[in-house]
Amino acid sequence: MSATHPLIRMEHVGKNFGLFKALHDFNLEVTKGERIVVCGPSGSGKSTMIRCINRLEKHDEGRIFIGDIELTEKLEDLNAVRREVGMVFQSFNLFPHMTILKNLMLAQKLVRKTPKDEAREVAMHYLNRVKIPEQADKYPIQLSGGQQQRVAIARALCMKPEVMLFDEPTSALDPEMINEVLEVMTGLAKDGMTMICVTHEMGFARSVADRVIFMDAGEIIEEATPEIFFGAPRNERTKLFLSQILTH
């Protein structure tokens, strides 16, 4: 993928669930290495937006490009995109019937066609990186939520993606486990990974994000650097939202 044009380009994207407009004329460009935090009230379309990027949701209007590839019905293009886009879910979604190691090896073997030994090496490398190599032979249920989410991040990284999508990665975690996950994400950001994070961890947004995007009703309401976003938000809805989540 060339560096001259944006890694992700969403043009006038619309997505409807029945009569409900989840996304409306949505435009976004993300360049390589950029870290973007997306926030907004429940039902504002944040998750839908991020899920459109690897086509877990099909957009109804507009166009989405990942690198040079446009997301269409074409299966080979879709597979190419999914190889380049890693995703982390709110509810971890580890494969419950496989050990941690096998969770990390499965897609490498099936999708990347990596030989078994190499897949294991890659898996252990990323397990080390998220600091839980000793859990390799356990099943997901035997791990804490924070550990499971770190495994999920490692699993996505094993595919060597160009960009990582995080869909509220800490929302399902007990408070004491949030930091261990954010630490891993911060480490990723420092290494130059392109990231789009839907999150309400404002401390993380402040320290990591290049841009903060505030969404409401399927549209971008405000888009700014963290300094401006938190220091001097322009839009009334942004101010209201920030006052609601930052007072407690």
């Binding site: 877990l56 299966l75 890693g86 979604n93 494969f95 419950p96 019937h97 897609a107 999708v111 999920a152």
Partner: peptide, 26 residues
């Protein structure tokens, strides 16, 4: 669980692979 299949999808597993390696054993 649908989320498990979505995770497989996001990792690039095709329909048949998801059915064989995720749906069937569970």
């Amino acid at each position: 669980d649908h989320g498990i299949l979505e995770a497989g999808e996001a990792l690039g597993l095709n329909r048949r692979q998801r059915f064989t390696y995720l749906t069937t054993p569970i």
